[in-house]
Write a protein that binds this DNA or RNA. Structure first.
Lengths: 314, 314
DNA sequence: GAAATAGTGTCTCTGAGACAATATACT
DNA sequence: AGTATATTGTCTCAGAGACACTATTTC
């Protein structure tokens, strides 16, 4: 056994022995002399895909309002992509983690905190930002529309909630020489708000060979979104759709009290698919808890109100 | 509609209109004048959790060899953490994406390419590297032990495959004032090779409140691993365990031809749990394809060999 | 009573868990 | 013949899909 193994890490609080390197330096001496060097370094931005669900008013007072999935975008007030819409985000500072940067951006833009936040993916395509080398560490946040109040940030000309639609346009499959294949799916991402409509087509390519498999996303066309943010939004929607089915993630989009029909509408708007009532209720039964409250004056039979069940997570 | 919306993105190849910003600059002029500025920037490393499965020889020639899950570690030849074991990895260069950096590291360390590679998570705790501000964009690779041949890299004193054991030690639950709670799980990560044994305890804390939920990992104790790599390995194992159940990910650990029993052993060693044969075979039936080959000279009934079924992925 | 939604019951089908029975090479 | 593993069959139970039926409030 090497003697250096006798050390403990600084994490458990013990002192390190003074192991010396090839230059005869202890770790302390090494670090004192260490200079960050001239390696080029990237900027790292934390970009946020902030989802919420809103009600679309109905003409018929008896009918329930339709739900809509919305994402917060900010119109760029400076170059590059001046005038385009972008995800809220900002550069990570040396005194904070990417999570903290995401939290900070979130509370700057929406004034909310204590919400569901999840790291999505780190995008690093070269040239994704025309200014300089920038990676995007992206996050997804889910917030209850009831407690939001959008504020325009510093360099943002404007901020708006865009209704999200993400639909499969077409699929293809191309065989490779070695028996593998590439499956492609084109999705249309359509974002609509009072400020207009943005559209992008994002292609998801799944390359499958004998030994490997990999999935990559590519923005095929893009009308109105800045940077590679169409790709990030597409990725976020796919993550959200995936997780809705086996976690209680969707409950973070609900207010404190809600009906099961409202919850079902949220699932339906996320999945872009109708669900059967009875099966849905069985499925979410463990995720929610009954209360003794009911809806009132709704023009039809009142509905029991539920809250998120904090116990019993898997 | 704002006139700037008439632009197309550079992605679809159209020219941009010359929109001018507050300073009267077009985007081209802005970019020509842009200087990266003096914001401090982090270094970004791509760190690899490279898994494989090996056979443990049996004394009884008739018995099947046991499978072991292994991870590749490199003994550090310089400060910091001189002598400790670390994940293979390196800094991302300005001319490559994090994926490409991961690929590069992988092929430098193991000589393989065209393997399963998946981005895991970007770790950015402040102080995680004592030298300077370094984030780790971590990747998981799965390779078939048959085609590996470990090479020691430049600044690596040594490289070795460590047998992985990751076990739940204990759980706790602490109630918060506002009705939420924190659930903690302590896992022991034990890594064993001919170079010795490394042990760490990683705590997974799940904070659940009325509105939010978040999970964080913390290294409680650590004997022999460098940086926060215990956390990264724990995260990788949890990802692997999760995905094994609903994808064909485990097949990337298999050679071209394998028996269903071998595949079951791989599932068992990943999940650290025994599975029932009949149910297992039904479950993987769609993921594999029969061949007409059989094992030979095994001291008992021969077994049909299968290969990965490339079609029919979900 | 009509409209609209709330909530429940039940039949079927599928898939997993559990266990058992049978098959087959190699020494 | 004995050993060790291979492979298949079947019973049961739980959960999801599909559909239908009943309940309740408001106007």
């Amino acid at each position: 056994m090497l003697s250096v193994r006798a050390e403990r890490t600084r994490l458990d609080g013990d002192k390190k022995m003074d192991v010396r390197d090839r230059d005869g330096l202890t770790e302390r001496e090494f670090l004192e002399r260490y200079s960050a060097g001239d390696y080029e370094r990237p900027s790292v931005a934390a970009d946020m895909v902030i989802f919420t669900v809103t009600d679309e008013e109905e003409d018929n007072y008896r009918k329930l309002p339709e739900k809509e999935l919305r994402v917060l975008l900010i119109q760029r007030g400076g170059h590059p992509y001046l005038g385009r819409w972008a995800l809220p985000g900002g550069f990570v500072r040396p005194t904070e983690t990417t999570e903290q940067a995401a939290q900070r951006e979130l509370s700057e833009e929406t004034g909310v905190d204590n919400v569901y936040l999840e790291q999505l993916y780190t995008f690093s395509d070269i040239g994704r930002d025309p200014r300089t080398w920038v990676m995007s560490c992206s996050y997804m946040a889910l917030i209850d529309a009831g407690k939001v109040q959008v504020r325009a940030g510093d360099d943002a000309a404007n901020a708006a909630w865009f209704k999200v639609a993400y639909r499969l346009l077409g699929e293809g499959k191309e065989l490779l020489k070695d028996g593998g294949y590439v499956r492609t799916q084109q999705h249309e991402l359509r974002l609509v708000s009072e400020h207009g409509e943005l559209t992008a087509i994002v292609e998801r390519a799944q390359t499958v060979t004998e030994t490997a498999s990999c999935t990559s996303y590519r923005v095929v066309s893009n009308d109105g979104l800045a940077f590679d943010h169409a790709k990030i939004i597409a990725y976020a929607i796919e993550r959200l759709r995936g997780k809705v089915n086996y976690t209680d993630i969707a409950l973070h989009l609900m207010p404190k009290l809600f009906t099961l029909t409202e919850l079902q509408q949220v699932y339906e708007v996320i999945l872009d698919k109708e669900l059967l009532k009875a099966a849905f209720r069985r499925k979410v039964a463990d995720l929610v808890a009954e209360t003794d409250h009911y809806t009132e004056n709704v023009g039809h039979r009142p509905s029991r109100l539920y809250r998120r069940n904090l116990e019993e997570l898997r």
